[in-house]
Amino acid sequence: MTENRTFTNLQLTSLVFLRLLIGWHLLYEGISKLMIPGWSSSGFLRESQWIMSGIAKWIISNDGVLNTVDFLNTWGLIAIGLGLIVGLCTRISAISGALLLLIYYFNNAPIIGIEYSVPSEGNYLIISKTLIEAAALFVLAVFPTGSVIGLDVLVARFKNKKNKKGL
C-alpha cells in the first residue's frame, strides 16, 4: 500500500491513535458481553424500530438465529478490536467494524418521531456517537495504517519474500 508513504508523521500518528482508541472500545464491548452471564442481544433488538425492526423481530423469534447473532456479534467485536489495535488485517477490520456499527445505528437510530423506552445516554438528533464511530472507521479504512504501524507490515514482508522466491 504505497499511499501510506505519503503520510506525514503527525498524520500517521493521529490515524494510528484513532485506530487504537476505536479498537480498544470495540474490544471491550465484545469482552464485556462475554463477561455478563447470559448476555443476549435480545434486549437491544426488542427496542429496534425503523427499517431494521423486521429483521430484529425475526432474529428474536428464532432461538437458533438469536444465538448465532449473539456469537457473531461478541466474537466479531473482539476480532475487530484486536485487529485494529495490533494492526492486523486493518482494512478488513475497519470496514467490518463500520458495517457492524451501522447495523447498531439503524436498529437504534435517533430519528425524529421514533421513541425508545430505554433513554439514551446523550442527546441526539439523527446523528449519534455510533454513527460517528462508524464514519471514523470508514476513514481508517480509506487511510489504512496497518502496513506502516502494525502486524500488517510483517504480513506484507512475508508475502513479498514468498513472491520473490516464486520468481
Partner: peptide, 19 residues
C-alpha cells in the same frame, strides 16, 4: 520495521491490565 509492526502489542498489554 519490527518495532513498528509490534507497536500495538503494548496497547494490548495495557488493555489486559485495565481489564
Amino acid at each position: 520495521t519490527i518495532l513498528k509492526a509490534l507497536a500495538g502489542i503494548p496497547v494490548l498489554g495495557l488493555f489486559a491490565y485495565e481489564l
